[in-house]
Amino acid sequence: MSERVEDETTVNDSYSVTVPAAVRRAAGIDAGDTLRWRVDEDGNLSIEVVDRRYGAFSELEPVDIGEETDAAEDHDLIPGGSR
């Protein structure tokens, strides 16, 4: 990242924060990514993207099992799915 990006956000009542759009774009942060929060001995906060959720299986080839599947119907943990 060659350009410095800086923005502010407010901690809400449930202690959640929204990552500002300019920061998300500059850092390549997407929904589902994991962030690591660190506070050093001087109280300085740093945040690092440690896990990018999407694209993890992008190199896998689909397997044809010879029948149609529907994950929402077939998976037992999805609300509304059949058991």
Rank of each mutant, 00 (worst) to 15 (best):
L45K: 09
E41P: 00
E48F: 09
A21D: 15
N12C: 02
R24K: 15
R36I: 04
G32L: 04
S46C: 05
S16C: 08
P79Y: 08
S14Q: 14
S82D: 14
D42T: 10
T34S: 12
E67V: 13
V39K: 07
D74Y: 04
V39W: 05
R4S: 15
I47F: 02
D40E: 07
V50S: 07
G55D: 01
M1G: 15
S2F: 13
D64A: 07
E73W: 09
P20Y: 03
L45H: 12
V50C: 03
D51T: 11
D33F: 00
R4A: 12
G66P: 01
D70W: 10
E61V: 10
V19N: 00
T18R: 14
E8W: 11
S16A: 11
T9N: 08
L35F: 09
R24C: 12
V50P: 01
G55I: 00
E68I: 06
A31T: 09
T9L: 08
D64C: 04
A56W: 01
V19A: 00
G32Y: 05
R83T: 12
V23S: 02
R38W: 03
P20A: 05
V5Q: 06
S46E: 08
R25Q: 15
V11N: 02
A27N: 06
V17N: 05
E3L: 13
T69G: 13
V23C: 07
A72P: 01
A27K: 07
H75M: 09
T69K: 09
I29K: 02
P79L: 07
R52V: 04
D13E: 15
R38P: 00
E41I: 06
T34K: 15
P20Q: 10
E48Y: 12
F57W: 08
G55E: 01
